Amino acid sequence: RMRAAGATIVEVRLPRWLIDAKGDFYSAVRYPEFASQIATYLATLSPGYPRSLAELSARADSIVAPRPDGAGPNAMRWSLFKRELGSGTLSDPRYTAVRDHALPLVRAHLDGLFATQRLDAIVYPTGSRRPDLISAPPEPPGGGAASGSNLANLSGFPELVVPAGFTTDQLPVGVSFLGPAFSEGTLLGLGFAFEQRTRARRLPRFTPPLPGEKLIVR
């Protein structure tokens, strides 16, 4: 669809070291930063609320049965609490090495790719695997190493996600447009043009408009 609309498509290949390491880079920064930042936030809450990530995790462990309506803790989220608790501090070498050396390396490589290939955006599936049905068994964290996801997180570059269609299970999928620093205007233009060309979005079947409302797909 993009080629038919006049876009010049350039096949690009990310180096294997970036594909293999981006998950490790992401977790090395994201886990200890979350532990630090959530503690700062929890300190602002009223008495009676958890004051630390450790208290949050302990409170989750105390909930052993779901509510009468079947709702209960998100098991994956609580397991991440424990992983974040054990991830170290913002002064640990694993964190500072990635922050000070690996993230600038990612930015420099992507900048070079945009410049040498004269790219307006790098386009890739937002998710590297099909979305699961609610009834599907939970999958372990991680995986999907072939996706471009996390590149925006690691580089700080802007990323725009727009609807791209549906799977055979009728679950929506998206496509990502990643651009260099301060290219938000270009990405918004590309995303809007893609949406107009594909008309991939559908109105939701199970959340119809409320009385007096009207949902319009443009």
Results as ranks from 00 to 15, higher is better:
Leu113Ser: 09
Met2Pro: 02
Ser91Asn: 10
Arg99Val: 13
Arg1Phe: 11
Pro131Phe: 15
Asp120Ser: 03
Pro131Gly: 05
Ala115Pro: 00
Thr116Gly: 00
Arg199Gly: 13
Ser183Phe: 07
Pro73Asn: 12
Ala75Thr: 12
Arg16Trp: 08
Asp69Ala: 06
Lys214Asp: 09
Ala65Asp: 04
Gly142Ser: 05
Val175Asn: 08
His109Met: 07
Leu85His: 10
Ser52Ala: 04
Arg201Thr: 04
His109Phe: 09
Pro15Glu: 04
Ser62Lys: 04
Asp24Ala: 12
Val98Asn: 09
Ala21Leu: 03
Ala145Asp: 10
Arg59Pro: 01
Val10Tyr: 02
Gly148Leu: 07
Ala7Asn: 01
Arg77Met: 15
Leu203Ile: 15
Arg99Thr: 08
Ser149Met: 11
Gly23Tyr: 04
Arg99Lys: 10
Phe177Asn: 05
Pro141Glu: 03
Ala28Gly: 07
Leu190Trp: 13
Gly148Pro: 01
Val162Gln: 00
Leu133Ala: 05
Arg1Trp: 07
Glu159Val: 09
Ser147Gly: 12
Thr186Val: 15
Leu90Glu: 01
Ala102Asp: 14
Leu151Arg: 03
Ala43Leu: 11
Ser135Ala: 14
Leu203Tyr: 13
Leu203Gly: 14
Thr44Gln: 08
Pro209Gln: 13
Ser62Pro: 01
Phe182Ala: 15
Arg59Lys: 12
Ala181Cys: 08
Pro50Val: 11
Leu113Arg: 05
Leu203Ala: 15
Leu110Trp: 00
Pro125Ser: 07
Ser36His: 14
Arg51Cys: 04
Arg205Lys: 15
Gly142Ile: 08
Ser62Trp: 00
Ala4Leu: 10
Tyr41Gln: 03
Gly88Val: 11
Ala102Met: 09
Val98Trp: 07
Gln196Ser: 12
Asp61Thr: 10
Leu160Gln: 00
Arg201Met: 12
Glu33Arg: 15
Ile63Cys: 08
Pro131Ile: 15
Gly72Arg: 14
Gly72Asp: 09
Arg94Met: 01
His101Glu: 08
Arg77Val: 15
Trp17Gly: 00
Glu11Ile: 03
Trp17Ala: 00
Ala145Lys: 09
Gly70Trp: 12
Gly174Val: 10
Arg83Asp: 09
Ala60Phe: 14
Glu195Lys: 12
Val217His: 11
Ala58Ile: 00
Pro15Asp: 02
Glu195His: 08
Arg218Phe: 14
Leu56Arg: 14
Pro158Ile: 07
Leu215Lys: 12
Asp132Glu: 05
Phe177Ile: 06
Ser135Arg: 06
Glu139Val: 12
Thr168Ala: 15
Arg202Thr: 11
Gly112Met: 03
Pro15Gly: 00
Ile9Met: 10
Arg13Ile: 07
Glu159Asp: 11
Ser147Thr: 06
Ala54Cys: 10
Arg205Glu: 14
Ile216Thr: 10
Ala145Val: 04
Tyr124Ser: 00
Ala21Tyr: 00
Leu105Thr: 14
Pro47Trp: 14
Val106Ser: 04
Gly23Ser: 07
Leu203His: 13
Asp100Tyr: 01
Leu187Glu: 05
Gln170Gly: 02
Glu184Val: 11
Val29His: 02
Pro180Asp: 00
Asp132Asn: 05
His109Tyr: 13
Leu18Tyr: 01
Arg205Trp: 11
Pro163Gln: 05
Ile134Ser: 02
Ala75Arg: 15
Val123Ala: 02
Ser135Met: 02
Asp92Ile: 05
Arg197Tyr: 11
Ser79Asp: 03
Asp132Tyr: 02
